[in-house]
C-alpha cells in the first residue's frame, strides 16, 4: 500500500512546516517584536541588544522547548505502547515526583545558591533516576517485569514523593517554598548552554534508539503473548523502551521542571489523525511535542508580558482544552 507511505510523508512535511512556523513566531514575538527581515538582519550583524536577545534568550529557549517537548511526547508514546494503555504518561510512573523531591531537598539544603543552575537539575535527575530504579526493581519478579504491577507502583511512588515534597514545604521557609513551587510549575528559562545541548542530544538519540524497536512496538499492540508469537523478544523490548522513556523524562524534568500533559495530549491527538502505527507515530509525536512546547512557551512569555507565566500552567490548560475538543469530535471512543 504505497498510498499510506505517501500519506505519512505528507504528515511529516506538514509537521515540519508547522514547526518552522512556530519557531518563526517564537523568535519574532516577545517583549520586543521583530519582523522576519529584521531577524535576518540582526542575525547577520551579530551585534546589538537585539542579537543578544535572540542568541541568548529566544533561540536557546526554542531549542530547549523543542528538545523537551519531543522527549516528553516521545516517552509518552513509548510508555503508552509498552503498557498498551493510552492514558499512561511519563509522570504516571512517578518520575516527576522523584525529580521534584530531589529538587525540593536541594533547595532546602541550600544547594540552589552559588553554582545552583547546574546543581538543581542534577539533584532533580538523581531523584528521577532513583524513582525509576525503585519502580523498576519493585515490579521485577523472577527477573521479569510485571507491567500492570509496575504501573500501580509508579502511581504510588508518585503519591509518596509528592506527599514528601508537601511535607518539606510545610516545614521550610517561605522563600524556599516559593522556589520549590516555581520549579515545579516549570520554565524553559535557562541560560546554561550545556544543559540545552544535553537535552537536545539525548532526546534525538532516544528517538533513533526507539526506531530500532518500532516493529516490536507495533507487534505489542496485539498484546504481549501475541507479540511473542510473532517472534518479538518482549522482555528486552519492554525493558529497553521503559529505560529510554524514563531517561528522557528524567532529563527533561530535571532541566525544565514539571511540564505536564505533553506526553499524554500530543500522542493522543496524533493517534486520532494518523492512526496507531508507531512507525509514523514516534517521529510525529516527537515533532508534535516540540511544536506544542514552543507554542505554549510563546503564550507563557507574551500573555502577561513583561511578566512570565509558568509554562506548566499553559500546557495544562491549552492541552486539556484542545484534547477534550478533539476527543469529542473524533470517532474514537
Amino acid at each position: 500500500m504505497k498510498g499510506r507511505y505517501i500519506h505519512w510523508f505528507y504528515y511529516i512535511l506538514a509537521l515540519l512546516i508547522v514547526l518552522l512556523l512556530s519557531i518563526w513566531l517564537s523568535v519574532s514575538y516577545g517583549e520586543i517584536n521583530l519582523s522576519l527581515v529584521e531577524i535576518i538582519q540582526i542575525l547577520k550583524s551579530k551585534s546589538g541588544i537585539e542579537y543578544t536577545i535572540l542568541n541568548k534568550i529566544r533561540i536557546p529557549r526554542i531549542l530547549l522547548g523543542f528538545a523537551v517537548g519531543g522527549a516528553l511526547s516521545l516517552s509518552g508514546v513509548l510508555l503508552q505502547g509498552v503498557y498498551r494503555n493510552p492514558l499512561v504518561e511519563p509522570y504516571t510512573l512517578g518520575i516527576s515526583g522523584g525529580a521534584s523531591l530531589g529538587v525540593a531537598l536541594a533547595i532546602i539544603f541550600g544547594l540552589s545558591t552559588g553554582i545552583g543552575s547546574v546543581l538543581l537539575p542534577i539533584s532533580g535527575f538523581i531523584g528521577a533516576a532513583m524513582t525509576i530504579f525503585l519502580v523498576y526493581f519493585l515490579s521485577l519478579r523472577n527477573n521479569y517485569v510485571n507491567i500492570s504491577k509496575m504501573l500501580l507502583i509508579g502511581v504510588m511512588v508518585s503519591f509518596i514523593a509528592s506527599s514528601a515534597v508537601m511535607f518539606l514545604m510545610s516545614t521550610t521557609t517561605t522563600e524556599n517554598v516559593h522556589s520549590i513551587v516555581f520549579w515545579i510549575m516549570g520554565s524553559l528559562d535557562t541560560s546554561n548552554v550545556l544543559l540545552i545541548r544535553i537535552v537536545l542530544i539525548t532526546s534525538l538519540i532516544g528517538l533513533v534508539i526507539s526506531y530500532l524497536y518500532v516493529n516490536p512496538l507495533n507487534a505489542l499492540r496485539l498484546g504481549e503473548a501475541k507479540a511473542k508469537h510473532l517472534g518479538v523478544n518482549t522482555h528486552v523490548t519492554i525493558r529497553v523502551l521503559f529505560i529510554i522513556a524514563s531517561l528522557l523524562t528524567g532529563i527533561s524534568v530535571s532541566v525544565v521542571g514539571v511540564i505536564g500533559f505533553v506526553g499524554l495530549i500530543v500522542p493522543h491527538l496524533l493517534r486520532i489523525f494518523i492512526g496507531s502505527d508507531y512507525r509514523i507515530l514516534l517521529i510525529a509525536s516527537f515533532l508534535g511535542g516540540g511544536i506544542f512546547i514552543i507554542l505554549c512557551d510563546l503564550v507563557a512569555r507574551t500573555l502577561i508580558a513583561p511578566n512570565e507565566l509558568p509554562i506548566g500552567v499553559i500546557t495544562g490548560i491549552i492541552g486539556g482544552v484542545i484534547f477534550i475538543i478533539a476527543l469529542s469530535k473524533s470517532k474514537i471512543h
Binding site: 500500500m1 526506531y211 530500532l212 516493529n215 507495533n218 507487534a219 499492540r221 496485539l222 498484546g223 501475541k226 510473532l230 517472534g231 518479538v232 492512526g275 496507531s276 502505527d277 474514537i332
Partner: peptide, 22 residues
C-alpha cells in the same frame, strides 16, 4: 486482539519475523 487497524496491515504483521532492525 482487535483495534483500529486496517485488515491489510494486520495481515502484514505476519511478516514481522522476517523484518530486520530499522
Amino acid at each position: 486482539e482487535v483495534f483500529d487497524i486496517p485488515v491489510e496491515d494486520f495481515v502484514l504483521m505476519g511478516r514481522l519475523p522476517y523484518k530486520k532492525p530499522f
